[in-house]
Amino acid sequence: MAVLPIRISGDPVLHSPASAVTEFDDELRTLVSDMFETMDAAPGVGLAGPQVGVPLRLFVYGWTDDDDVLHRGVAINPVLWISPAGTEELDEDLEAEGCLSFPGERFPLRRSESAILEAVDLEGQPFQVRADGWLARIFQHEYDHLDGVIYVDRLTHPFGKAAAKASRKNSWGVPGLSWLPGRDHLED
C-alpha cells in the first residue's frame, strides 16, 4: 500500500469527466487500497480517482456518524440519486465543506439532504446505500469529482469569490500541482 499524491485544483484530470471502470483486477484492488490509505493519511472522509490522477469513475469513503457507526466503502461506476436541495439561507458552519484538492479551505455549500448511491464493489457486485445528512453530502461531493466538478465550482457569492481569491493566493489553478499527505508542503 502507498500514500498517493493528491492533485490540486487546476489539474486537468480534476476538471474532466472520468471514464467507467472496465477492469476488475489486482491493479484496481491495489488502487483502491492506496486510495483508502491516502484518504486516511490526509485525513479526509472521501477520495475520488481523479483526485489521485486516475480518471476512472470510483471513489472511497470513510466516515463515523454521531452514533459511532463507521460508514466505509468503495463505489465503482456509481449512479447517485438526490432529493431536491433546500432553499433556506446557508448555514455557514453546518454546511461548510472542504476538499483534499482545495486543501486547507472550507466554504458553505447547499447540498441535498438525502441521496441513494447505486454502484458496484471491487468484485463487480451491485449495491445500494441510502444516505442522509453528512453521508449524503460526502456522496454528492465525491460523485461531483467523477464529473469533473470541484465543490468550489458550485459556490455562490460571496463564497465563490473567496474561493477564487484563495486559489490565486496559493498559486493554484494550473496543471501539475499536488500534495502528499504526511508532508507539510505542496509538491509541483
Rank of each mutant, 00 (worst) to 15 (best):
A2K: 14
L4V: 04
L4F: 08
R7S: 08
S9D: 06
D11C: 09
P12S: 06
P12E: 09
V13Q: 04
V13C: 05
H15C: 06
S19W: 00
V21C: 06
E23S: 15
D25E: 11
E27V: 07
T30K: 13
T30A: 13
L31A: 03
V32T: 04
D34F: 11
D34W: 09
M35P: 05
M35T: 03
M35N: 02
M35S: 05
M39H: 12
M39G: 08
M39Y: 12
D40N: 01
D40G: 00
A41Y: 10
G44W: 01
G46N: 05
L47E: 02
L47W: 02
A48K: 00
A48R: 00
G53V: 04
G53N: 06
V54S: 00
L56T: 00
R57C: 07
L58Y: 09
L58P: 07
L58G: 07
Y61M: 10
Y61R: 10
Y61Q: 12
Y61N: 11
Y61W: 14
W63G: 09
T64P: 10
D65V: 06
D67Q: 15
D68E: 15
D68A: 13
L70M: 14
H71E: 11
R72S: 15
R72V: 13
V74D: 08
A75W: 08
I76A: 07
V79T: 13
L80R: 03
I82Q: 14
I82S: 12
P84F: 06
P84D: 12
E89I: 06
E89Q: 12
L90H: 08
D91G: 05
E92P: 14
D93Q: 14
D93K: 13
L94A: 15
E95F: 02
E95N: 01
E95R: 01
E97W: 11
C99A: 09
C99P: 14
S101R: 03
S101P: 10
P103K: 03
P103V: 05
F107L: 11
R110Y: 11
R111T: 15
R111E: 13
S114K: 12
A115V: 10
L117Y: 02
L117I: 01
A119I: 01
V120S: 03
D121L: 08
G124D: 09
G124C: 10
Q128E: 15
R130C: 00
D132G: 15
D132M: 08
D132A: 09
G133P: 04
G133V: 02
G133M: 05
W134K: 07
A136F: 03
A136E: 06
R137L: 05
I138L: 10
Q140T: 04
Q140R: 02
Q140K: 04
H141L: 09
E142N: 07
H145R: 01
G148E: 03
V149Q: 01
I150E: 02
I150L: 14
V152C: 01
D153P: 13
R154C: 08
R154T: 07
L155K: 02
H157K: 11
H157E: 15
P158D: 11
G160P: 11
K161N: 08
K161W: 02
A163Q: 06
A163E: 10
A166N: 05
A166M: 11
S167M: 14
K169D: 13
S171A: 15
G173N: 08
G173V: 13
P175V: 07
P175A: 15
G176Y: 10
S178G: 04
W179R: 13
L180I: 14
L180E: 10
P181M: 06
P181E: 10
R183G: 01
